[in-house]
């Protein structure tokens, strides 16, 4: 699954870091880094993290694989 965090919006409440520690990390007190392509096995954790974000900064892919495909 693909995610992106709007880091303009992020205020380092760090709920995601508690809920999905494998995919979200704080560097210092406030600088969030994350895995943009978390393992599908952790989808529930990621969804919980996105739901818990007080500023709703986490965007999760809304398409499944078939719809994503690009033709050249």
């Amino acid at each position: 699954m693909q995610i992106v965090v709007d880091l303009n919006r992020c205020q380092a409440y760090a709920q995601c870091v508690f809920l999905a520690p494998e995919d979200f990390r704080l560097s210092g007190d406030e600088a969030l880094t994350y895995e943009p392509n978390p393992d599908d096995a952790r989808r529930l954790q990621i969804q919980r993290a996105a739901a818990a974000c007080p500023v709703q900064a986490i965007v999760i892919d809304r398409l499944d694989g078939a719809e994503r495909s690009v033709t050249s």
Binding site: M1, Q2, I3, V4, T33, E35, P36, N37, V59, I60, D61, R62, L63, E67, R68
Partner: peptide
């Protein structure tokens, strides 16, 4: 930590 090819943008629709 994150491979370069993991950075695809999520699709909104």
């Amino acid at each position: 930590w994150v491979p370069a090819d993991h950075t695809q943008l999520p699709r909104l629709r």
